[in-house]
């Protein structure tokens, strides 16, 4: 087991990962079976848990997090209460974004979680700008910006990462490479499939590829990256992970198209199973504790669903509020 990581911390990560998985499974059910989550967009984080949890474990509350539309797991890993998150899924007034953002636009200002963004790559220059504020005001804060593998082929990636590099801004860019952008494989999208190598082009620190299924490896690498970024500027990391569900709820053929690979990940490389096995190996008789954590996660998600179902819908006043800051 990794040095300097306590049992308590590992169990905390296990709790977060299980909670994210349970939350996402429930969202899936609420969408397809219960029809309580509606709309056309719902992008689940299942399979990616170790990357989000391991990365965000390195940050302090003064640091910043921003991501794309696969944002539920990031919000939970950042410590946002699942109740207003679930309420947002259902478009309720009590949602983190008042029911006006939906699944793809979760944010929590008090957690320095700057949001999920739904235009591919659109949040990347925002990360650059948030890091500029940190540098400008010498706050010492670092920004972690998650990037889907698909977004690395978008002009925003080039412009935002280049600018952050030129200005030595404290951003840890983490590519979550799940090998498929919507439905197109990385090797069909770029001749340079080792996405971390883009760092070389921008003159920023290339921290290579990591096993994004292993929360400890993610934590250790990102920890080093965050410390580097705090004083030296941008870092790029490529975390290899795997998406368990389709791109979004509209993607109906994913599990058939990639059936063998998906089974391999779920059976042999699942991030939660991997961490559970390591815990069991390290600490005798830990299974009851893990069982308790799993039961707690189910309870937390149950409560979030209950909260969301019993919350009011937004009103006409909400519809017309916050178009502008009143001044």
């Amino acid at each position: 087991m990794a040095k300097g990581i306590s049992k308590e911390q590992l169990l905390n990560w296990y709790h977060q990962m299980v909670l994210i998985r349970e939350f996402e499974d429930r969202c899936d059910h609420l969408y397809f079976v219960d029809k309580k989550i509606t709309g056309v967009y719902l992008h689940l984080y299942s399979g990616h848990e170790a990357t989000g949890v391991g990365a965000l474990a390195t940050l302090g509350p003064q640091d910043h997090v921003i991501t794309a539309y696969r944002d539920h797991g990031i919000a939970i890993a950042r410590g946002v209460d699942p109740k207003p998150l679930m309420a947002e899924m259902m478009g309720k007034r009590t949602g983190v974004s008042g029911g006006k953002g939906g699944s793809m636009h979760l944010a929590s200002r008090e957690h320095n979680f700057w949001g999920g963004y739904a235009i591919v790559g659109g949040h990347l220059p925002l990360a650059t700008g948030i890091a500029l504020e940190a540098q400008y005001n010498e706050t010492g804060a670092v920004v972690i910006s998650f990037i889907g593998d698909g977004a690395t082929n978008n002009g925003y990636f080039h412009e935002a990462v280049n600018m952050a590099g030129a200005w030595k801004l404290p951003v840890v860019w983490i590519i979550e490479n799940n090998f498929v952008a919507m439905g197109t494989r990385v090797e069909d999208s770029t001749a340079q499939t080792e996405l971390h190598k883009r760092a070389i082009a921008y003159g920023i620190k290339d921290m290579g590829r990591i096993n994004g299924q292993d929360v400890i490896e993610v934590y250790e690498t990102v920890k080093e990256a965050v410390e580097y970024a705090r004083t030296n500027g941008s870092v790029l990391i490529e975390s290899l992970t795997y998406r368990y569900k389709g791109h979004g709820v509209s993607d109906k053929t994913y599990s058939e198209r990639f059936a063998d690979e998906l089974r391999d990940y779920q059976e042999n490389r699942d991030p939660i199973t991997l961490l559970a096995n390591r815990l069991k190996k390290e600490y005798k008789n830990i299974e009851p504790e893990l069982e308790k954590i799993r039961a707690e996660a189910v309870k937390i998600v149950d409560e979030s669903v209950e909260f969301a179902l019993n919350s009011p819908d937004p009103t006409y006043e909400d519809l017309i509020a916050h178009i502008y800051v009143e001044e």
Partner: peptide, 25 residues
């Protein structure tokens, strides 16, 4: 620091300005 020449990156000039504004500048 306060008069910043940027790369020719219109997406990032506008986008980074949005991010900086959100963060309080």
């Amino acid at each position: 620091k306060r008069v910043r020449d940027t790369p020719i990156s219109e997406m990032a000039i506008a986008g980074a300005a949005v991010g900086a504004a959100m963060a309080g500048l």
